[in-house]
């Protein structure tokens, strides 16, 4: 039993920190930056991606001995696309406001390199339960980066945290203004570049 827990801990640690999908493996950036203008959209996006990766990895892993090699990628895409479509339908039904803001980016989870990447790199060679954990781990690693970027962008760009203004009025009165650049594309790029620099300085980069 303790062997399994250490194994899971290892999978989790790798996925969340040491081999963080965004910072280390350089995967999954695409949709990441567009939804980080606000923390609420980033959190929902992270949740959606984590669940899709975990479940699709688990399903693909359980089929791994039966999938014919020549339709492997298509089969994986079919499973992933189905998970994403179901997720999108659920979001539109229960979280309508957020789904409006996420617009096409939920659908783009299908092409998110993390989901397909983990299916190919892990799910095909490991059992379903391990694959599920690995999916959660990488999803959490992605969420970590996403939420960190969103936190900074929302704070600096709009002076808010989860939609609540947090910068006291006296600071605005003293001349401080929201950094509008943070809400736009360049801001996202800079923040993520600097965060990855920070992360790699702490834990060493891929060479």
């Amino acid at each position: 039993m303790s062997n399994e827990t250490t194994q899971y801990k290892e999978i989790l640690f790798k996925g969340i920190w040491r081999e963080n999908p965004v910072a280390y493996q350089v995967l999954g950036i695409c949709s990441a930056l567009a939804v980080t203008v606000k923390m609420s959209t980033a959190i929902v996006m992270s949740l959606a991606l984590t669940l899709v990766t975990a479940f699709s990895s688990m399903i693909i892993s359980s089929m791994r001995n039966k999938i014919p090699s020549n339709i492997r990628i298509i089969a994986e895409l079919a499973v992933i696309a189905s998970m994403v479509i179901v997720t999108d339908e659920i979001l539109q039904a229960f979280f309508y406001d957020i789904s409006k803001q996420l617009s096409i980016f939920v659908g783009l989870i299908i092409t998110n390199c993390i989901v397909l990447g983990r299916a190919e790199a892990f799910a095909l060679a490991n059992n379903p339960l391990d694959s599920f954990v690995d999916g959660i781990a990488n999803g959490l690693g992605y969420s970590l980066v996403l939420i960190a970027v969103a936190f900074i962008r929302e704070l600096l760009g709009a002076g808010e945290f989860l939609g609540f203004p947090v910068i006291p009025a006296f600071i605005y009165d003293a001349g401080y203004q929201n950094m509008g650049l943070m809400l736009l594309a360049p801001g996202a790029f800079f923040i993520i570049g600097l965060l990855v620099w920070l992360k790699n300085s702490i834990s060493g980069s891929k060479k």
Binding site: L184, A185, F190, N200
Partner: peptide, 22 residues
């Protein structure tokens, strides 16, 4: 700097390019 090289640097350059396109 070594930790910035690669992905980090590309992001910062992309940011500058995005500003130009804006």
């Amino acid at each position: 700097p070594k930790s910035l090289d690669g992905f980090g640097m590309t992001m910062i350059v992309a940011g500058l390019m995005a500003m130009t396109f804006m």
